[in-house]
Amino acid sequence: MGAGHGHRLHFHAHSPIHRAPAHLKIVALVVFMLVVVATPRQAYAVFAVEAAALVGVVLLSRVPAPYLAKRMVIEVPFAVFAVLVPFVAYGPRIDVLGVSVSEPGLLAAGALLIKGTLGVLASLTLAATTEPQDVLRGLERLRMPDLIVQIMGFMIRYLDVVTAELARMMVAMRSRGCEPRSPQHWPTLARAMGSLFIRSYERGERVHLAMLSRGYDGRLP
C-alpha cells in the first residue's frame, strides 16, 4: 500500500512545540483542559489568560492560523447548540437585540462556547505539532495499556486506507444514480457498508498473518 502514513491533521514544521516530548504535551493538554473546564463561568479574566497562553503556544509552534481555523469547523454543530441555550434556559429574562433570552442561560452558553473553542484549539494544536507515532509512544510512556496503544496504532495506520475505500464505494454508488444519504437507498448503502466491514475484517486477518510470519508474539517491538 503506497498510501501516506501520516494523518492529515499533522503540520510539519520545526519548533520547540514540535520537538517537545509527546507525553509532556499530552499531560499538558489534559491539565490545561481540566483547568479550563473548572474555570467559573464568569471569570473572563481567567479565560483571557488561558486563551493568551494557548495562542502563545500556537504562535510558538509556527502552525499557521488559517490551517487551524479551517479545522475548527468541527465545532460548528456544537456552536449552533450553544446559541440555542439562552432561549430554552430558565432564570430571569433579559432583552438582547429585542429578543427575550434567559440571562444565566446566556452566561452559561458564552462560557460553554469559550471552553469548547479552547478545547478544540488545544486538541488541534497537539495533533498539528505531534506525529501520530509520537502520540502513541507518549501514551505508552503514560502507562496506557499496551493493547489499547496497539489498537490505536492499527487504526491510525489503516484510517486513510479504509476511508478511501469507503469514498470509492460512495463514488461508485453515486455514479450509478444512488444517493447514500437518502433513506430510500439505505439497503444499497448497507450492502456497501457490509462489504466494507468484510473487507476491513479480512484485511485485519491478512495483517495478522503477515505479522505472525514476521515473528509477532503479541507485542510490538
Binding site: 493493547l147 496497539q150 489498537i151 490505536m152 496504532g153 492499527f154 487504526m155 495506520r157 489503516y158 484510517l159 486506507v161 479504509v162 476511508t163 475505500e165 469507503l166 447514500p180 444519504r181 448503502l189 457498508m193 466494507l196 466491514f197 476491513s200 475484517y201 484485511r203 485485519g204 486477518e205 495483517v207 495478522h208 505479522m211 503479541g218 510490538l220
Partner: peptide, 18 residues
Amino acid sequence: TAPMAGLVATFVFAAQMI
C-alpha cells in the same frame, strides 16, 4: 486482538462518517 480490533475500529470510524 490488536490487528482485528484496530481494523474494526477503523470500520466503525468510517461508518460514523456517513
